[in-house]
């Protein structure tokens, strides 16, 4: 029965989708407008030109939805005129996902030492330092960054800047 099928696929999944687009005016607006207009979630979105000669940009989107919604998102992205390719990095085999965060911690004494110790464990680098503060640079999966930022909270966390997820498939194949 159709109803059972509907129920069976209603569990929400998180997918990372890579989209290759012409780097032209308004293209990011089209993608974001598609998500807001149709009520899809954006958990993370990154965009940058990746081919300067052909003027192509790559957009990495982390989104959640039922399998039917994820499929719909990919189809809707695919019909945008400036879109060259849409690839579901979650569904189409293994991928590497990385995010960078700059994390500012302002504290002194024992808490300052502790923040440095934890940064060491997470392989975060100090990129700015004053007597009362550090800026840490940390690279990794989203979960690792979340954990690091959580640990910094009681140690004087004052500011966070994150890039969002950049992702690429494993192996020799290109997008």
């Amino acid at each position: 029965m159709r109803g059972d099928i509907v129920n069976a696929i209603e569990t929400s999944e998180t997918h990372t989708i890579a989209v290759l687009v012409d780097n032209e005016a308004g293209v990011l607006g089209r993608v974001i407008g598609l998500f807001s207009g149709r009520g899809y979630n954006i958990e993370s979105l990154t965009v940058s030109e990746v081919d300067h000669r052909e003027r192509l940009s790559r957009i990495n989107i982390v989104t959640t939805g039922t399998p039917m919604v994820i499929e719909q998102i990919k189809a809707q992205l695919g019909r945008l005129v400036p879109v060259h390719r849409v690839r579901d990095l979650t569904a189409d085999g293994p991928s590497v996902q990385r995010e960078l965060a700059l994390v500012k911690v302002a504290s002194t004494g024992e808490r300052r030492v502790e923040s440095l110790r934890i940064a060491d464990i997470f392989r975060a680098r100090v990129v700015d330092s004053t007597n009362e503060s550090f800026v840490f640079e940390i690279v990794g999966k989203t979960g690792k960054l979340d954990a690091f930022i959580r640990l910094m909270e009681p140690l004087g966390l004052v500011d966070v800047s994150r890039t969002g997820v950049a992702a690429i498939s494993r192996g020799a194949e290109s997008l």
Partner: peptide, 23 residues
């Protein structure tokens, strides 16, 4: 409750129209 016992063939020029409302 739409066409509860149907197997559905869907032909459309717009891929986004397929599996949007009905699988």
């Amino acid at each position: 409750g739409f066409a509860p016992n149907a197997q559905i063939v869907h032909v459309d020029v717009d891929a986004a129209s397929i599996n949007k409302n009905v699988r």
